[in-house]
Amino acid sequence: MRLALGIFRLQPAGGLERHALRIAGVLAERGHDVTLYTTQGTDSAPTGVKLSLLPNDGRTNHGSMDAFGQRFAEVGTDAELRIGFQRLPGLDVLFCADWCYLDRDHPKWAPLLPRYRTLTRLERACFDPSSKTKIITLSAPQLAAYVRAHGTQADRTVVLPPTIDPAHRATEPTDAAKRAAARHHFDLPERAVVWLWIGLQPMVKGLDRTLEALAKHPEAMLLICGTDRTNRKTASLLAAAERAGSGSRIRVVGMASDTQLKAAFAAADFLVHPARLDVTATVILEAMANGLPVVTTANCGFAPHVDAANAGLVVPVPFEQRVFETALTHAANAPRETWSRHAITYCANPRLYSGIEHACNLIEAGGNDEDWRRAAQAAEAGLSAPKP
């Protein structure tokens, strides 16, 4: 089939961007004619995938997304299916990694704002009952939020199993030699308690909460991957950490390659992910798949896997900084080697790596209601992962 895939940009390469490239690559491997439309490309497009750059016409974030939606609707008109990775008009299939915009807390005057009206219109283009777009979501709470807001029909929605890349899975916990080498690489003391934080959105993913806790844990060091000082909010948070006296205990990696991430997982004692909102928090399972215990918040889509595996601690919501800091203290003194073994065992389950294949099956079925129904049933059969 001729498939047109649309994603606003491919850089910086966060979780959604990596998903889009993996899906495009698998579809091309299956023999489809795949064109990926975007405003900002990448040098690492999968073999067989054609990249087509569209101009970025907007002056604001919401204006840019609206303009991209209009541009994407005008190109690739010979495609048999149109697949979007953001909420856009005219899609056959939406791969949705975002939380419902209408389900968020908005002030009463928000509907007066162009941003609110634009984002609401784009969301309704996919989720309103009058839409024909078939929708792939990543977690049950995420889908429930859309249904609450829009009344979206169940027969055109599906929740994927996790989408972890099996190439990134470890088969045994990190040994002492690899750990020492990784710590040397990041200039981390051998005996320090090392926290790993990964993300591009410092406030959404709780970097501020992590830095506040770091100031009260002088035995700990923090390794930051994803964001860096070019992000104004990150720079502000790091400057505040310097003033608090904890700057020397922070290492900022920025955008990390797969090799660097593997080293970061090996160097750390546990992942800290006190997010305010995270549809899945894929990084939780990525850490566990590398034997790294996790301290996270209960409002992350994949937080139940931490409890199911007995591979760390889940902080309840509503969030309290004091409770989070207590959890970090407990984690520093917990049997992390046991947590690590539990994580490795749990993440041997092949269901945790099946999401991308199911997503591609669903896209291929997007033009036929009965094929979609069968593909959706197969995807949702792989949702739950049993305890080890």
Rank of each mutant, 00 (worst) to 15 (best):
E219P: 01
T230P: 00
L261H: 08
A215P: 09
E242H: 09
T227Q: 00
K233L: 06
M203W: 14
G254V: 05
V204R: 15
S257L: 04
L237M: 02
D228V: 05
P202T: 10
K216M: 12
K216Y: 10
I224L: 03
G245Y: 13
Q260A: 13
Q201R: 15
N231T: 03
G199S: 04
L196F: 04
T227N: 00
T230L: 10
R209C: 13
W197D: 01
Q260P: 09
G245A: 10
L196E: 01
A268M: 06
E242G: 06
L223W: 02
E212D: 13
A220Q: 01
L261F: 14
T227G: 00
F265K: 00
A220P: 00
L261S: 03
K262I: 08
D269C: 05
G247S: 07
M221T: 07
G199M: 12
E212T: 12
N231A: 04
I250Q: 05
L200A: 07
D228M: 08
H217C: 08
N231D: 08
K205H: 10
A239L: 11
P202E: 02
N231W: 06
D258Y: 11
V252G: 08
R249Y: 01
M255R: 15
D258T: 06
A220C: 04
H217L: 13
E242F: 09
I250K: 04
